[in-house]
C-alpha cells in the first residue's frame, strides 16, 4: 500500500489498484476516459519519477517532467501528484526591461531574487492584480541572473498585452506562474537535424530552444525559419544572422508572406519555404510555434515528409477571447 498526496491531503492506493481507480474511489475530481492508456485524458504530474509503464506512449519531454497516466500506474513508492487544474504557485518578479523589439512587440525582462527553474521553450502565466492571467513563452535559457525574457505582441483589442505595453514599467512587480509546456530541447541525438519554424512571437520559444541546443553542443544542422506578413513584424533579424555567421551548423531564414519582400528575405509562407528548402526531413526533430493554423498544418506536413510523430513538438499560440 502506498500513499498518494494531493494538495496536502493523503489517500491510500490499495495493492493491485491503479492510481486513477484509487483517486476515483476517493471522489477526487479527475478527468479520464478510456482507462487503457490511449486517450491521455487523465495525464497528471508527479514529484517523484513514476513507474516506466505509466509513461508509455508519452512524449519524451513529458516523461522528463514526470508526467504519467494514472490509469496505467501501479505505484512503486509513495507519490505526490499534481492535478492539471490545481492552482498554480505564483512568484513575484521585478520588471528590469520593457523596450520595443518592433512596431508591436516588446521585450519584457523579469528578474527574480532566487533561481527560477525552467526549460527553454516552456511558457508561464503572467498575472495582473485583478487575477486575469495570460500565457507567454520564455525566450531565454536559464541564467545566472535569474531573469526571464518575453516577447509580447500587442493584440488588437488585447487588454492584457496593452497593459504590459503601456502600463508596466521597469521596477514594477509582476506575478509569474511555474513554467509549463513540453515543447523544449532534450540533449540527446545531438547529430539530429533540428527544424524550427515560427510565426510572429513564435520566435520567443524557438530562440530559447535554439540557444539551449547550441549551448548543449548540438552538432546536427539547425534551421530556423521565422515568418510574418510584413517586415515590420519580424524582429531580431540581425542577431539571428550574426548567430548564423558564428555557428556553421545554424541556418536562419526570415520569410515574408506579404507583397513587399526586400532582398535577403524569402517570399512566401514560412512553412512552405521551410518544406521546399528541406525536402527530406526523415529522422529530424521539429519545433513549431506561433499561429495555430500554421502549426497544425505544418505538423501534418512534416509528418508526411518522414518526421516521426514523437519528434514533432508544437506550441500553438491560442488567443484568449476577451
Amino acid at each position: 500500500m502506498y500513499t498518494l498526496t494531493i494538495d496536502e491531503s493523503n489517500y491510500t492506493c490499495q495493492p493491485g489498484e491503479t492510481v486513477l481507480d484509487a483517486l476515483l474511489r476517493e471522489n477526487i475530481n479527475i478527468s479520464y476516459a478510456c482507462k487503457k492508456g490511449t486517450c491521455h485524458s487523465c495525464m497528471v504530474r508527479s514529484t517523484e519519477v513514476p513507474p516506466q509503464s505509466a509513461q508509455a506512449g508519452l512524449k519524451k519531454t513529458l516523461q522528463t517532467l514526470n508526467y504519467f497516466l494514472p490509469c496505467q500506474c501501479y505505484p512503486e513508492q509513495d507519490m505526490t501528484i499534481k492535478l492539471p487544474d490545481q492552482s498554480d504557485f505564483y512568484r513575484m518578479g521585478t520588471v528590469i526591461d520593457n523596450t520595443l523589439l518592433n512596431r508591436n512587440t516588446i521585450l519584457l525582462v523579469i528578474a527574480f531574487a532566487d533561481a527560477f527553474e525552467f526549460k527553454a521553450g516552456q511558457f508561464v502565466n503572467l498575472q495582473k492584480s485583478d487575477g486575469v492571467t495570460r500565457s507567454y513563452s520564455i525566450a531565454n535559457i536559464p541564467q545566472q541572473s535569474n531573469t526571464l525574457e518575453f516577447h509580447i505582441r500587442r493584440l488588437p483589442d488585447g487588454k492584457f498585452s496593452a497593459w504590459l505595453h503601456d502600463e508596466v514599467s521597469v521596477g514594477d512587480s509582476i506575478a509569474v506562474s511555474e513554467p509549463r509546456g513540453h515543447c523544449f530541447y532534450l540533449p540527446e541525438r545531438r547529430e539530429q537535424g533540428l527544424l524550427l519554424v515560427g510565426t510572429g512571437t513564435g520566435l520567443a520559444p524557438l530562440a530559447g530552444i535554439l540557444t539551449d541546443a547550441l549551448a548543449q553542443g548540438h552538432t546536427g544542422p539547425i534551421h530556423l525559419f521565422h515568418g510574418s506578413r510584413d517586415i515590420e513584424d519580424l524582429y531580431r533579424i540581425d542577431e539571428m544572422r550574426q548567430l548564423a555567421a558564428q555557428h556553421p551548423n545554424f541556418h536562419y531564414t526570415s520569410c515574408l508572406s506579404g507583397k513587399n519582400v526586400p532582398e535577403g528575405f524569402a517570399a512566401g509562407r514560412v512553412n512552405e519555404i521551410a518544406l521546399s528548402l528541406l525536402p527530406d526531413l526523415k529522422s529530424w526533430r521539429v519545433f513549431l510555434c506561433g499561429h495555430p493554423d500554421m502549426v497544425n498544418q505544418m505538423k501534418k506536413q512534416v509528418f508526411l515528409k518522414g518526421v516521426a510523430s514523437a519528434d514533432i513538438y508544437a506550441d500553438a499560440f491560442l488567443i484568449t477571447p476577451r
Binding site: 490511449t38 491521455h40 505538423k299 510523430s309 514533432i312
Partner: peptide, 11 residues
Amino acid sequence: DMDKQIAKQKA
C-alpha cells in the same frame, strides 16, 4: 488532432 489520432491508431 494528430497526436490524439495517432494514439487511437495505436489502440
